[in-house]
């Protein structure tokens, strides 16, 4: 049995009550996850992406045992997560980017000591894992600091360490780089890469940051409206979505749309114009061309975001 995570036709249906009159309420069913099947072998690092409300978090919550699936079969390391929740918890690590599991008013180290006792980690193992996390995540100077005084990036690193002290088989990361600065993001990514390479920890991460996926995951799953829309290599996703980057230029004054080879103007707003160009192309010749031909004041390049890639992948209007 090499598949660590198995989902077969998993569904999650929520009953939503809507007020339709003064006293009347209508019961409506919302299918947050609508029949998802996939397998993740041990040691793989998978990106799980999709727009807001697509069902990503709901899937993660079923995988971790927080939510009970409405239908379908779900196994992680051979366990049924919601029925064997505490046994499951011993074998997984979970990092919620938006909420910390650390103890707010206590020094960082106290949270680790609790994990030591609660996960019943053998002393030697705990020492070894903690030392490793402290070294690689740069936590040595933070162990005595109350968590409330940590910066967002420091806290995220602290949370990741807390999720790894008990040698989990699977690590779930829900938006692990949200709100972090460039340097913190790089640190976190490097750490995850090493972890995956050295310990063969299976990692499943959700993110809005396409760079996370590019740098970490060979395999991507795209979910939308509760269904799995794409499961394969990242390169394939790019082809399917023909992802584009955006060059935003500020000109001296209002001008007709800029003409440049390999790029098209998608939006004009006073002296500011937005040009889309293929993500695979270099921005340099384009910038040189515009600088030579037009009165350029300022410019910036925007990376494609997941929403845009997915939107282009499945043509058709999308409500935001």
């Amino acid at each position: 049995m090499t598949d660590l995570v198995e989902l077969d036709g998993v569904e999650k249906v929520f009953d939503v009550r809507r007020k339709t009159g003064r006293w009347r309420r209508e019961k409506q069913q919302v299918r947050a996850v609508d029949g998802i099947s996939f397998r993740v072998p041990r040691g793989e690092m998978v990106g799980y992406i999709g727009p807001n409300g697509a069902g990503k978090s709901t899937t993660i919550k079923m995988l971790t045992g927080i939510l009970t699936p409405s239908a379908g079969r779900l196994r992680v390391a051979g366990l049924d997560p919601s029925r064997e929740r505490t046994r499951m918890a011993q074998r997984i690590g979970v990092v919620f980017g938006q909420r910390t599991t650390l103890w707010w008013d206590l020094p960082l180290y106290d949270s680790y000591r609790l994990a030591h006792r609660m996960y019943r980690i053998p002393d030697a193992r705990f020492r070894e894992n903690l030392d490793r996390c402290v070294e690689l995540l740069d936590l040595a100077s933070l162990l005595d600091v109350p968590v409330r005084q940590l910066s967002l990036g420091q806290r995220m690193r602290g949370d990741i360490a807390a999720a790894l002290l008990h040698d989990p088989d699977v690590l779930y990361l829900d938006e692990p780089t949200i709100g972090l600065d460039v340097i913190s993001k790089a640190k976190v990514r490097q750490f995850l890469r090493d972890l995956n390479a050295e310990r063969a920890t299976t990692i499943l991460l959700t993110t809005h940051d396409l760079t996370d996926i590019e740098q970490l995951c060979r395999r991507v799953m795209v979910i939308d409206h509760g269904r799995l829309m794409y499961d394969g290599a990242l390169t394939g996703l790019h082809e399917a979505g023909e992802s584009e980057r955006t060059l935003v230029v500020d000109l001296e004054r209002e001008l007709p749309p800029v003409r440049a080879e390999g790029a098209r103007v998608v939006k004009v707003e006073g002296p500011r114009q937005w040009l889309a160009f293929p993500a695979s192309a270099s921005a340099a010749p384009l910038v040189a061309h515009i600088a030579a031909e037009y009165p350029l004041v300022d410019l910036s390049v925007r990376e494609p975001d997941i929403e845009a890639v997915i939107a282009r992948m499945y043509e058709g209007p999308r409500v935001h």
Binding site: R75, A77, G78, L79, R87, A89, Q90, R120, D167
Partner: peptide
Amino acid sequence: PGAAGAAGAPERLPA
């Protein structure tokens, strides 16, 4: 329970 535990995973003490 336990039978399906992954090979090579460290022993887990009861919660």
